[in-house]
Amino acid sequence: MRSFSLLIFSTLFLAITCFTSCSNDDEVIAPVEEEVITQAVYTLISQTDPTNIVIFDFLDADGEGGLDGISTVTGTLNSGTVYDGTLTFANTIEGEDITEEINEEKEEHQVFFQSTVAGMTIAYADEDANNDPVGLSSTATTGDAGTGTLTITLRHEPTKDADGVSSGDITNAGGETDIEVIFDVTVE
């Protein structure tokens, strides 16, 4: 009799514990992806001919992972020309402009421009509170006609006072890469 009641008790205990699955139907709201940057746009406007506009656009519509990003270049870069450059960042998933956020934290950010096109140089046209460059505004100067690539890198928490960093050399910068995009460049 005793073992029988034990059996009953055990079965009950199991029945209760095995099937008390909690429900998974809680209301959930998809998380807002605050920090993702999906688009970087570098716009160059000729100082001498305001109709000569070149746009370098990198867009990774679904963020990191998933599909690859696409880079497009519109407009023609002319040789021997000085351009005013502006760089903007956006989170297209949430429809948010990230440029302002970076501008507010400019001491912690720096953009690096590396061009393999002969004669093409890019200089900083802005600075942070410590008189160190940021790179949201820049001046691009083309030399002779040629082709190559332009790599734009945005670093978070770089060591801005490390050797060469303030003049745009990325070698000793450190920090984390928030953006690293490469464009094919043709100077005509």
Binding site: C18, T20, C22, N24, V28, P31, E33
Partner: peptide, 26 residues
Amino acid sequence: VQNLTAKIKNDFSTGILPIIPNHISN
């Protein structure tokens, strides 16, 4: 005989896509 039931729940206010989804395992 054994049973292990678990419920995993994210706080979605992190602003980052969660690496592990909400789920129940039994």
